[in-house]
Design a protein around this nucleic acid. Structure first.
Lengths: 156, 156
DNA sequence: TAGAACGCTGGAGTGCACTCCAGGCAAGCG
DNA sequence: CGCTTGCCTGGAGTGCACTCCAGCGTTCTA
């Protein structure tokens, strides 16, 4: 089974969250400290450690003194998590997804379904927002008209 | 200053949140109990009372025994609040807007600006969601391909 | 080799947006 | 007349997603 370049099988099958952003180092030298990841992702160190505690991250590699060393793959995962967070997906659901990824290839179907559901959610959120936008535009043009009317009243 | 039919001046200038939804009664007989409003809006009675406490609602009319009686105008306002809530606008900002509405016509400019900012927020949320959608679609098609590959592997 | 800077942990605290509770009126019904 | 139903209040509680703290070890720089 050969599908794409980086996305083959196993735990690595879930790292394609978009173009590589920020100042990444090439694979092999990718052992970022927590503060580097903070700079790269915008998350706080607290949040990164918390994500790990709740099982939203795979187990992060450690230095010989026990400090976290994040890899490019970890950054990819964080980028995906960031995207999913934007959709409003609850953290618990992301943890569920993370568990599926950890469990191996036989969870592909379930992951697929979870992502499909999320996709539907996103579509309806977009529709909602566009409905709201229509309301806002209506009110905004009302206030714009009112402002013009007030102005012409003053110059009259 | 004459702008539109219902949207003229004063406290009533902020009730245009879309088509009239649900089983409204005509103006004049619009004295809904809290449970009717619950049915009409999907909010809980707790939330409705809480909205009032924090100043997100105008003062609601009461029956002779002190029970709330909501008007069509109140429902309009709730519909707008619902829309704004969908945008992710914090409740505190909605309270601010409600205060502006209560303060009278001289706050038109400020209301306009607030709505404009909200509009921009909504636009960027939509853009964010569309970015996320792209990522989801990429991953979904990956899993779809993987599923097909696994299937053909089994039948091979 | 001192001191600042960075990182670690478990657990407690925060802010938001509700959500619920206890105790008590008031109206309608058999 | 009692009972159920609906609504009232102030205040306490909940769930989520962080966010911070105390107390300690390690690493880097002067």
């Amino acid at each position: 089974m050969t599908v794409t370049g980086t996305e083959t099988t196993g735990a690595g099958a879930d790292s394609c969250a978009g173009p590589p952003q920020g100042d990444r180092r090439p694979d092999g030298e990718d052992r970022y400290t927590i503060s580097e990841v903070v700079a790269l992702t915008g998350l706080t160190a607290h949040t990164l450690r918390w994500y790990e505690r709740i099982g939203l991250m795979p187990h992060i590699d450690r230095s010989h003194t026990g400090q976290r060393r994040y890899s490019n793959r970890d950054l990819d995962w964080l980028a995906l998590v960031g995207k999913l967070r934007l959709t409003g997906m609850p953290v618990a659901d992301m943890v569920r997804y993370a568990e599926l990824v950890r469990s191996g290839d036989h969870t592909y179907t379930e992951r697929f379904e979870l992502l499909e559901r999320t996709r539907e959610d996103v579509l309806s959120r977009i529709a909602e927002l566009q409905g709201t936008l229509a309301v806002l535009d209506r009110k905004i043009s009302f206030y714009a008209d009112a402002g013009r009317a007030l102005a012409s009243e003053r110059t009259r």
